[in-house]
Simulated scan of single mutants.
Amino acid sequence: MSATTRLQSAAARLRPSGRSWVIGLPYVWLLVFFALPFAIVLKISVSEMETVHFKDLLRYADGVVLLALKLSNYEFIAQDPLYLQAYLNSLKYAAATTLGCLFIGYPFAYFMARSRASLQPALVMLVMLPFWTSFLLRVYAWKGLLTEQGWVAQALTGLGVDRLLASAGLIETAGKFMNTPFSLWVGMVYTYLPFMVLPLYANLSKLDGRLLEAAADLGATPWVAFWRITVPLSKAGVIAGSMLVFIPCVGEFVIPELLGGPQTLMIGRVLWDEFFSNNDWPMACAVAVLMILLILVPLALFNKYQSQQRDARGSH
């Protein structure tokens, strides 16, 4: 083999293959758009701010390299009940929104998956139709619908729903829906419902209908077949939709600001105040770091579930 042939062979081995590009690009994306920004935010959260600059973490003095980490921001967050309450509110409303989207979205996704094939594209378009309108305009529209003159508020009042909500503590008084936990929940469920419906529809549309026919032949009622076959097989769609709803809801700012009230303080609002009202960037970054860690917990659980599913399929 000539020297030129050997060089060409070595160059071919060093040249990235298509598989390497496919695998490497997502990691590069995560590095550039998540890991590096998170590292910057983490650095600011443990830095000391002087006027508009941050002190260096590594300092050299008298032949000694000093690492100065300011942890007082995290200590203050742990001691101040305001931050703890904001984190708990964020988790509570995110969980309530996820359950509401699942309760509403699962029947709709099931109906879409069981509709005629010619009708399904139109139904998917109807689910995606709200994205053609500005997110901010849609939230403002709910402000008009839930005020005392809004037709949604009038309909709920006419049906007596306001008294039930008032007795449950979701609104302050009968007939007043705005700036309450109820208005916040309605706005968040409406906004994030498509993120639950689409993964569920994608999962349910792949369900083999012969399994339900076999269950019916074995004497199972439609309700039993639904709970014993359809629901377990749609677990991946439920988990994917729940993650797509829960994670952005934790850090939501616009909806709590426009539809929520004083008792619906969420961590997104606290983060905004620290950045733009208090101009305390280290404290704001510390709040953001803890919020990201809260979001990473359900992601880790989701990845663990996916790994278990892959291992189960591999064992079979």
Rank of each mutant, 00 (worst) to 15 (best):
M1T: 14
A10S: 12
A10L: 14
A10I: 14
R13L: 09
R19V: 14
V22S: 14
G24P: 03
L25F: 13
L25N: 07
L25H: 13
Y27D: 04
Y27S: 02
L31A: 12
V32N: 13
V32D: 07
F34G: 08
A35D: 05
V41Y: 01
I44D: 02
I44F: 04
S47V: 00
E50Q: 14
T51A: 09
T51D: 13
H53C: 06
F54E: 00
L57E: 00
V64Q: 07
L66H: 01
A68L: 01
L71Y: 02
S72I: 05
Q79A: 11
Q85P: 06
S90V: 08
T98L: 05
C101M: 05
C101N: 00
L102R: 02
L123W: 01
M125E: 06
L126N: 13
M128R: 10
P130F: 01
T133L: 15
L137I: 11
T147K: 11
E148H: 13
Q149L: 14
T157M: 12
L165N: 00
A168P: 05
F182D: 02
W185A: 02
M188S: 08
T191N: 12
T191A: 15
F195G: 02
M196W: 01
L198Q: 03
L207Y: 02
R210G: 14
A215W: 09
L218V: 08
F226Y: 11
V238C: 09
V238W: 04
A240G: 12
F253C: 05
V254L: 14
P256V: 09
E257G: 08
E257S: 13
L258M: 13
I267D: 00
N279I: 12
D280N: 11
C285F: 00
A288D: 00
M291Y: 08
I295L: 09
V297W: 07
V297T: 07
V297L: 13
L299W: 07
K304S: 09
K304V: 11
Q306C: 10
Q308C: 08
R310C: 04
R310K: 04
